[in-house]
């Protein structure tokens, strides 16, 4: 082994990350080469200096406490999902259904079940704009955005770039909706941001699109081909419908 090769491997050697054969070759070389042996010693010196406790910053107690506190709050907020699994739910269903019928008849509270998702979706949309956290993967390429979700959610969302149709894809992120981790795809039309939430639907039931209005945002939902879609934007409703039509039935020239 000559010096340039040895030099290249010195760090991995120091870290015990070379295989046995390489290891003995490097050891042999170091035995006969003062220059490389000195390089190794310098690396060892720096590394041992870096182990000083004062260079390792431990989390302050106050931080530990405040994290535990906010986690409890977050857990409380998620707790309702547990009720659906509780045994007494079986008995509550008929009662709940009756209440639901009553509520549906009251004009003030129409359609609360789907409204809850719509309200959550609008909250997610607003939050994504507020904290400047639109995209975890910022890319206009569906072949970058789609694979990014691998391993982050247990499904592969359909991603279509509609730039040619005037709705460029600008990225994607993970979000949480209706007690599920969901893929959020972000599109743009002029200055308007469109959030598209996608998650698997129970069964292969297809649901026609329905639109509603929450706090001035338009929400359009449908289910197709095993996925729930929920689209939120402040875009003018006709343009948004044009967008959802494209999304539901992409033109043949838009690659999938």
């Amino acid at each position: 082994m000559d010096c340039p090769i040895a030099q290249n491997l010195l760090d991995a050697y120091l870290d015990g990350e070379v295989d046995a054969l390489r290891n003995s070759e490097i050891a042999d070389h170091l035995h006969g080469c003062a220059g490389c042996a000195q390089s190794l010693e310098e690396r060892q010196t720096i590394r041992s200096r870096l182990k000083a406790p004062s260079l390792y910053f431990k989390a302050p107690d106050t931080l530990q406490k405040s994290i535990r506190h906010s986690l409890r709050q977050a857990a409380k907020a998620e707790a309702p999902s547990r009720w659906f699994n509780a045994p007494w739910v079986k008995f509550a269903i008929p009662a709940g259904a009756a209440v639901l019928v009553l509520i549906t008849l009251m004009p003030l509270y129409r359609n609360p079940a789907s409204d809850r998702v719509a309200v959550e979706a609008v909250a997610n949309h607003v939050r994504s704009l507020m904290v400047d956290h639109l995209a975890d993967v910022g890319s206009t390429d569906e072949h970058t955005v789609k694979p990014w979700f691998n391993g982050k959610v247990n499904f592969s969302p359909p991603v279509t770039d509609l730039a040619k149709q005037g709705f460029p894809l600008i990225g994607g992120r993970l979000d949480y909706l209706d007690n599920n981790p969901v893929a959020a795809l972000v599109y743009q039309r002029d200055k308007h941001i469109i959030n598209v939430f996608v998650w698997p639907s129970a069964g292969s039931r297809e649901i026609d699109s329905s639109s509603s209005n929450q706090q001035g945002y338009h929400v359009i939902r449908w289910a197709r081909a095993g996925f729930n879609f929920c689209v939120v934007s402040d875009l003018e409703i006709n343009q948004l419908k044009q967008f959802t039509d494209l999304l539901a039935a992409p033109p043949p020239d838009a690659a999938r």
Partner: peptide, 22 residues
């Protein structure tokens, strides 16, 4: 559910807060 999840999270993830902060 929220509580079980919190317990599991506190046991598996929170021991690494020092690493996270560092």
């Amino acid at each position: 559910g929220g509580k079980d999840k919190l317990e599991r999270f506190e046991q598996t993830i929170l021991p690494h807060l020092d690493a996270a902060y560092n």
